[in-house]
Design a protein around this nucleic acid. Structure first.
Lengths: 201, 201
DNA sequence: TGTACATCAGTGAACGCGCGTTCACTGATGTAC
DNA sequence: TGTACATCAGTGAACGCGCGTTCACTGATGTAC
């Protein structure tokens, strides 16, 4: 790893400041409120200055998404891997949901923006958070904790496990804001338990 | 029910044409592509003409959302209510997902647009599709097919059941377009079975 | 049935706005000798 | 250490664009008598 010159360090710091500003704007005003001009205003630069760091607005959004995927994977990796498979699956699910709640701007940009969705690589082995999920389900199958069916194997189980945490995250972030008749975290845990227990037979 | 004058009929027909055009545009270009001008062009009117029918762009979007909620409720109501509670719950879940797949523009506008989310009434008794879901879970509890826990009762079960179908719908519509390594419908059915069977204990 | 008038449905042009991006420029920082 | 020059980081003004909405208008449709 080469050491960086002061100039390079400053460059990276400014780049980070741009991404931070972008995240804050999305958090406060939604993705529609994000504009080059708003970012520039927040970091007290002229709009044109941002083009020294990113080629376009789209590049900035892609960078924020990339950051989000990294941090999501990190949060899931922090889960204790020595847990029994069903508990481990539940725990990474809870970590996933917690990440979404704590980083709504990241999560919504990652999964709401049509521009960053739908390419096969995203769900394939290269997408590391999904890879973690696949491994968790595989372990459950190997250890006999989950039972396969002809039409419900590794991929299907992982896909539906993803769907449930994604559904919880999206509902809470987009539809159930300002609504809390009960403790969501507890209900979510029960939902994961219910779903996971269903994988056993 | 009063009969309508030809003028009133024509008015309603044009109103419908506006909503249809709006839905098609969202379908083809996403919600961001929706504009008064685009709708006007599609129905071969001047942009200003739309203000004869709706007060603002927002009113048009709200009307499309309203249509969507109606149709979703209709689709779920069409499910055979004489099915045993667990099968009934699965069936309305499948109807929910099928609606989203067949009406992506409705579904995405309803659940993606921040402007139409988050008011308590939306999840309360007034939202009829959620009411259907609540009734289904209640039946399962009454019949002893589902078992309550201290932290996982009627509302929690309904909320998480909603989350799972919502997650499936959103994933398929926004992230897994152009990706089909297996039959989603089959996997979805298994997921609902797995989740529902988990409600029994 | 004919006529006078009111209402309705639609047009075309214009408004002000915020946007992403470009471009010529300038002063500051770093580099070579 | 001093000087000449190249590169870097940032500015300010302007571009063209598409947007929602308003407004004065006009011809068509409906209504009253």
């Amino acid at each position: 790893m080469t050491t960086l010159s002061p100039r390079e360090r400053r460059h990276l710091r400014t780049k980070d400041a741009i991404l931070d500003a972008a995240r804050q704007i999305i958090r406060e005003q939604g993705a529609d409120g994000l504009s080059i001009r708003a970012i520039a205003e927040r970091i007290e630069y002229s709009p044109a200055a941002l083009y020294e760091y990113f080629g376009s607005k789209e590049e900035i959004m892609a960078a924020v998404c990339g950051q989000g995927h990294e941090r999501l994977t990190q949060a899931m990796t922090a889960v204790d891997p020595t847990l029994p498979a069903p508990e481990y699956l539940m725990a990474i699910g809870q970590a996933y949901i917690a990440f979404a709640m704590q980083n709504p701007e990241h999560y919504l940009l990652m999964f709401t923006n049509p521009a960053f969705a739908g390419s096969p690589e995203d769900i394939g082995a290269s997408d590391s958070s999904f890879t973690l999920l696949l491994a968790a389900v595989q372990r459950g199958l190997d250890e006999g904790a989950f039972k396969e069916r002809p039409t419900y194997g590794l991929m299907q189980m992982a896909y539906t496990a993803w769907a449930i945490v994604h559904g919880i995250a999206m509902l809470r972030l987009t539809y159930l804001t300002n609504y809390d008749p009960f403790d969501f975290d507890t209900a979510d845990r029960e939902a994961l338990r219910s779903f996971t227990s269903g994988l056993k037979k």
